Simulated scan of single mutants.
Amino acid sequence: MQADELLKQHLLKTISLTDEQFAYVFSHFKPLSFKKGQAIISPGDAVDAEYFVLSGCLKSFYMNDDLKMFILQFAMPNWWASDYNALTYHLKATITVDCVTDAEVLCLSSDDREKLCDELHQFERFFRLRTNKGYVAAHKRLLSFMNNDAQGRYEELLKQYPELYNLVPKQLIAAYLGVSRETLSRLKRNG
């Protein structure tokens, strides 16, 4: 499917746009291609855009001083990714967004997003609802870490995103769950 059709279907699940409005919206997106392992955002970067995933998989992660990786998000097709703290508050990036696989994305600059939100009430509504859903998902993940042991988090992830296990290397799933690769193997055997 073409990039414009993928984005259009994604937007139309939440808002209504005429063909002319969508064409105008789409004209503000820039298609980009990235290779597996390529960084889109690195710590210290100025962040002025977000990325809608057309194909492939991205990951957002933080690396602490002990070089331990904490995965914040996997972004598969029809998901968005950026360093939202840096984007929102015009700060330097503190996380990395890179490619788990080769990826095709649509890039929307912060300025263009604000322009489109000012001009089209529906587009502003889309981003408000998307932000609310993202907040709820982050809240659920935090509660899962507080309430579930590793086995519970593993089962929850399997249930919620079964496609991740075919797409993402196991060491990254372990980092997402906050466990070692060995613990993940044990969880799989017990699950």
Score class of each variant (00 low, 15 high):
residue 16 S to K: 14
residue 33 S to N: 15
residue 181 R to H: 12
residue 59 K to M: 13
residue 123 F to N: 01
residue 98 D to S: 13
residue 146 M to I: 10
residue 51 Y to K: 01
residue 154 Y to T: 10
residue 114 E to W: 02
residue 28 H to V: 01
residue 101 T to F: 06
residue 44 G to E: 04
residue 131 T to D: 01
residue 94 T to W: 00
residue 156 E to A: 11
residue 63 M to Q: 14
residue 49 A to K: 08
residue 176 Y to L: 01
residue 126 F to A: 00
residue 15 I to V: 14
residue 156 E to T: 14
residue 164 L to P: 02
residue 52 F to N: 04
residue 14 T to W: 00
residue 27 S to D: 07
residue 34 F to S: 02
residue 100 V to I: 14
residue 122 Q to H: 12
residue 157 L to I: 09
residue 161 Y to E: 13
residue 164 L to N: 09
residue 130 R to I: 00
residue 109 S to F: 00
residue 125 R to Y: 11
residue 79 W to D: 02
residue 16 S to C: 05
residue 33 S to V: 08
residue 157 L to N: 01
residue 128 R to M: 12
residue 189 R to I: 13
residue 55 S to T: 08
residue 170 K to G: 12
residue 124 E to Q: 15
residue 76 M to H: 02
residue 51 Y to E: 04
residue 119 E to P: 03
residue 149 D to P: 11
residue 50 E to K: 12
residue 13 K to H: 07
residue 159 K to H: 14
residue 77 P to W: 04
residue 112 D to N: 13
residue 26 F to P: 04
residue 120 L to P: 09
residue 173 I to E: 13
residue 1 M to T: 13
residue 138 A to F: 06
residue 176 Y to P: 03
residue 180 S to L: 00
residue 64 N to K: 11
residue 46 A to P: 03
residue 101 T to C: 05
residue 39 A to N: 13
residue 157 L to E: 05
residue 51 Y to M: 04
residue 172 L to D: 15
residue 57 C to R: 05
residue 36 K to G: 01
residue 121 H to M: 12
residue 28 H to D: 00
residue 173 I to W: 14
residue 80 W to G: 03
residue 157 L to F: 08
residue 176 Y to E: 03
residue 98 D to M: 08
residue 163 E to G: 11
residue 145 F to R: 11
residue 41 I to V: 15
residue 168 V to K: 07
residue 169 P to V: 03
residue 25 V to D: 01
residue 146 M to F: 09
residue 7 L to P: 05
residue 15 I to C: 06
residue 168 V to T: 02
residue 138 A to L: 15
residue 120 L to V: 07
residue 168 V to H: 08
residue 67 L to Q: 12
residue 159 K to Y: 10
residue 93 A to F: 05
residue 183 T to N: 00
residue 159 K to C: 06
residue 139 H to G: 03
residue 123 F to S: 04
residue 178 G to M: 04
residue 151 Q to I: 11
residue 140 K to C: 10
residue 9 Q to Y: 14
residue 43 P to I: 11
residue 84 Y to D: 03
residue 119 E to M: 11
